[in-house]
Simulated assay, not measured.
Amino acid sequence: MIKINYFYSPEKESEINLEIWKSFIDSGEEGQRIYKEYNNDTYEIQLKAVTEVEQSGLPAIVEEILASSGMGALPILVVNNNVYKYGSFLLIDAIEDVLDIGLSIQVEEE
């Protein structure tokens, strides 16, 4: 099982990143079935909004990064209890690397 935790600032997180995560979470059992069929593994995703006021209850590795780098270190992507990326990074590239899949997104213009 691949455990993915994404810690982000609700004030600064892009809507596109949250939509990417939402699509994985909404895929539910069907998404898990397809992933397991092709990769012989499963994944679990948890998102956590982090504010300057409320930083208790975070994993020690996340607290350490926030203590040394401040809120600018967000977002922080933790995979299997290890920090995978933090700060400024392309979420799609990170997910593709972690889950060994290809992603494509479409953004509708308003």
Score class of each variant (00 low, 15 high):
3 K>S: 11
3 K>G: 06
3 K>Q: 12
4 I>M: 10
4 I>L: 15
4 I>S: 01
8 Y>L: 02
10 P>H: 06
10 P>Q: 05
10 P>G: 03
10 P>K: 06
13 E>N: 08
14 S>I: 01
14 S>D: 14
15 E>M: 08
16 I>E: 15
18 L>H: 12
18 L>S: 11
19 E>D: 13
20 I>M: 12
21 W>G: 00
21 W>Q: 03
21 W>T: 01
21 W>I: 02
22 K>N: 14
22 K>S: 05
22 K>W: 02
22 K>F: 08
22 K>R: 15
24 F>T: 00
25 I>F: 08
25 I>Q: 03
25 I>D: 02
27 S>N: 08
28 G>V: 05
28 G>H: 13
29 E>G: 01
29 E>F: 14
29 E>V: 15
32 Q>W: 10
32 Q>F: 07
33 R>T: 13
33 R>S: 12
33 R>W: 09
34 I>L: 15
35 Y>Q: 03
36 K>M: 15
36 K>N: 15
36 K>G: 10
38 Y>P: 00
39 N>Y: 11
40 N>C: 06
41 D>W: 04
43 Y>N: 06
44 E>Y: 09
44 E>T: 13
46 Q>H: 11
46 Q>W: 03
49 A>G: 12
49 A>I: 03
49 A>K: 08
50 V>N: 07
50 V>E: 07
50 V>Q: 05
51 T>W: 04
52 E>K: 11
52 E>L: 12
53 V>G: 14
53 V>P: 00
53 V>R: 10
55 Q>R: 15
56 S>D: 12
57 G>Q: 13
58 L>P: 07
59 P>H: 06
59 P>A: 05
60 A>K: 15
61 I>Q: 06
62 V>F: 06
62 V>W: 01
63 E>D: 10
64 E>M: 11
65 I>L: 14
65 I>D: 06
66 L>N: 07
68 S>F: 05
69 S>F: 09
70 G>N: 05
70 G>C: 07
72 G>K: 11
72 G>E: 15
73 A>N: 05
76 I>W: 01
77 L>M: 14
77 L>A: 13
77 L>T: 05
77 L>H: 06
77 L>Q: 11
78 V>G: 00
78 V>E: 07
78 V>W: 05
79 V>S: 06
80 N>S: 08
80 N>Q: 02
81 N>C: 06
82 N>P: 01
82 N>V: 12
82 N>R: 10
83 V>M: 03
84 Y>M: 03
84 Y>A: 03
84 Y>T: 02
84 Y>W: 10
86 Y>Q: 10
89 F>K: 02
90 L>D: 12
91 L>C: 03
93 D>H: 04
93 D>W: 00
94 A>K: 05
95 I>F: 12
95 I>W: 09
96 E>G: 03
97 D>P: 00
100 D>M: 05
100 D>S: 06
101 I>W: 04
102 G>F: 05
102 G>R: 15
102 G>M: 08
103 L>W: 04
104 S>P: 00
104 S>K: 11
105 I>P: 03
106 Q>F: 08
106 Q>L: 13
107 V>E: 15
109 E>A: 08
110 E>L: 10
110 E>R: 02
